[in-house]
Design a protein around this nucleic acid. Structure first.
Lengths: 173, 173
DNA sequence: GCTAGATTTTGGAGTATCTCGATTATCGAG
DNA sequence: CTCGATAATCGAGATACTCCAAAATCTAGC
């Protein structure tokens, strides 16, 4: 409707030929995109910015945390974390309570109503992803598991898993 | 090392019981996390913020774009887009050239050196994800494809695909 | 039991990036 | 050729970050 792009994108980028990839590889990217969009929608839903959603994710996963620990997990300065917590408090998503044993510190604890609200959006989505597995046999599920494990490993990122984007507490068994 | 968390996270969040999920479902989340970390690393590599990386992704996928089209794709105001382009120009990632037919407009075109630099990081990673498929038979690859398609669909997000996070131009066939 | 250094949170100043509103140049239809 | 629509940019204000410093409390060592 506007741009002068020749209808098909170039097969060569920056002087580098782009190798063809197979469909599952493309789908992995699409999956990532879909996840990003879902996350954005959740941010709007909770009226928080990416930092706020990230913080809520850690609190949901790990329970009450001190601002210091939160700043480490969010990779923010403690000053910025203070500000982020202030915003969450104003929204009613968390409260500050005194640390039981260290009077210098504080515990940031998510409120029940905000937790329930977040879960109300997360659970249907998680359940629907999990339900997809019902369409596959046990053997097929093994294939899927192996594939996902290998792809994650191929990212070569040590200790993915550390950064939840509003994860559900893993039923660690 | 610090927090008063009882060693295992609660199975109930915000008064809502968390249903157990199967391993592939957890892996889908881990995959998302790994992708997010990779993206962050790429941002550092190119010295850009999330907006800058997103913009580069669109330019790589679609070729030169006008600031207006870019602002629509990034979901930013045109003013913010102007600033973002300024930053990319300063970094040498793009240049502004006059639009061939509309003298009001401009084309933002990625530089070869920055494209090559980005590709130098993207391609190995894409290739390694694609290479994982070699470990699976054709039938198994079909299973993987079906699974990924179904999971993406279950996100219920119309037109994922629109938002590239530094995608490679799809060899549209 | 006290003191000195470390740790925890918060506040203030400065910077980066966004929105909103206005400005200028150009396009395209009548 | 004029006028409403469209394109990019600029300036002012808001938001969210960094860095640095301050105040309270903890903890080790004497």
């Amino acid at each position: 409707m506007e741009e002068p792009n020749p209808s098909s994108p170039p097969p060569v980028v920056g002087g580098v030929a782009v190798p063809p990839t197979r469909r599952p590889t493309a789908l992995v990217r699409d999956l990532f995109t879909a996840g990003s969009l879902f996350e954005k929608a959740l941010q709007r839903e909770l009226a928080v910015n990416p930092t706020g959603l990230d913080a809520m994710g850690h609190l949901v996963m790990s329970g009450p945390l001190s601002p210091g620990e939160l700043s480490r997990r969010l990779d923010l300065t403690t000053a910025a974390t203070t500000a982020a917590i202030d915003r969450l408090v104003d929204l009613g998503h968390v409260t500050r309570t005194p640390h039981p044993t260290d009077r210098r510190s504080v515990l940031v604890v998510p409120t029940d109503t905000s937790m329930a609200r977040a879960m109300g959006h997360l659970m249907p989505m998680i359940a629907s992803v999990d339900a997809v597995l019902d369409e596959f046999s046990d053997e097929e599920q093994d294939v899927i598991t192996r594939y996902l494990e290998r792809v994650i490993a191929s990212y070569g990122i040590p200790d993915a898993e550390a950064i939840p984007s509003m994860a559900v507490p893993r039923s660690t068994h």
